[in-house]
């Protein structure tokens, strides 16, 4: 039997398939459909220091093989997560990766201090939120801005820390290098692509926020290219995300240099997609006589 267990930042993953942030809540809902303990891990809904109600108006819009969303980080806040969600998540039997966002440096630091005291396995620092002090431009656009937040966060964070990169960065390779230099233990990429839809009958943007994030199979080739580029530029491990829907997609990401992958929109297309992907990875390795998934990571 081929080995698909992965060690990522010293944390054992029973397989390299993680449910992506924002698509899986805190695991509870999908656990009513299948045993989510079979997953390598779950990246939580993006958390902020304070509870958030999220955006008004339409929040979802389907595109050809893609999905745009403007949820607006509706979440129970870090404290709400710690008191209400962690105890339930611990019962699921899978690694807990906490996706943490913030509009100010202080938001991140307080959130990290609170999370240090908990039993979560890893932090995924979401730097795609608008930076209030930088006039609303996301932390994840300019390398030097990301460097500052990652550097300070790393000093506070006592958990392994992965930084989630936005494809909207001015230069994804420089962004990856900047985060590595700032002390990121790993990188996950990519977040959603900034996108737009217009309702031609109403003659206005579909979303109240005008722009929204595009995910799904439509963005997979872009994500794969970025993972490949960044993997060739940094030494820290990479978690590949972006439109992965099948085991074949996942294997492409491993070959491009990712040692862990996340599945997002595909969970909506078929609720137990992650299980199909896990089984499909094993099948591929068996068929190709590959003993360990490590043997295909970064081979392209």
């Amino acid at each position: 039997m081929a080995n698909i267990m992965v060690d990522f930042l010293g944390i054992p993953f029973k397989n390299p398939v993680v449910a992506a942030s924002g698509t899986f809540g805190f695991g509870e809902e999908y656990h009513t459909i299948y045993d989510v303990g079979r997953l390598g891990g779950i990246s939580t809904k993006g958390l902020t220091r304070m509870e958030k109600e999220g955006n008004d108006g339409i929040r979802l819009w389907e595109t050809p093989m893609g999905l745009m969303n403007s949820i607006g980080l509706q979440n129970p806040g870090v404290e709400g997560f710690i008191s209400r969600e962690i105890p339930k998540m611990k019962q699921l039997g899978t690694n807990i990766i906490v996706n943490l966002g913030g509009n100010t440096l202080e938001d991140y630091l307080i959130g990290l201090e609170w999370l240090n005291q908990t039993e979560v396995d890893m932090i995924e620092l979401n730097i795609s939120c608008p930076n209030v002090k930088a006039g609303g431009m996301a932390f994840g656009i300019k390398g030097e801005v990301a460097y500052e937040v990652v550097k300070v966060a790393k000093k506070i964070c006592k958990k392994p820390m992965m930084v989630k990169l936005s494809p909207n960065a001015e230069n994804i390779v420089e962004m990856g290098i900047a985060c590595e230099a700032a002390g990121a233990d790993a990188l996950s990429l990519i977040n959603t692509l900034n996108a737009m839809a217009i309702d031609i009958n109403k003659r206005k943007a579909v979303f109240d926020n005008i722009y929204a994030g595009l995910s799904g199979p439509a963005i997979k080739p872009v994500a794969l290219r970025m993972v490949h580029q960044v993997a060739n530029a940094v030494k820290i491990p990479i978690c590949g995300v972006g439109g992965i829907s099948t085991a074949e997609d996942a294997i492409e990401f491993f070959m491009a240099g990712a040692s862990l992958i996340q599945v997002g929109t595909a969970n909506f297309v078929k609720a137990d997609s992650c299980l199909d992907i896990i089984d499909g990875i094993t099948d591929f390795l068996e068929k190709e006589n590959i003993k360990d998934i490590q043997d295909i990571i970064g081979i392209v």
Partner: peptide, 25 residues
């Protein structure tokens, strides 16, 4: 409009007196 249908994506929320509630859940 819904994406997940199970309460995970928060795409279908409805405003209620007790805050946002998920139309699907």
């Amino acid at each position: 409009r819904m994406a997940c249908g199970v309460g995970a994506c928060l795409g279908c929320v409805v405003k209620t007196t007790t805050g946002n509630q998920r139309a699907c859940k």
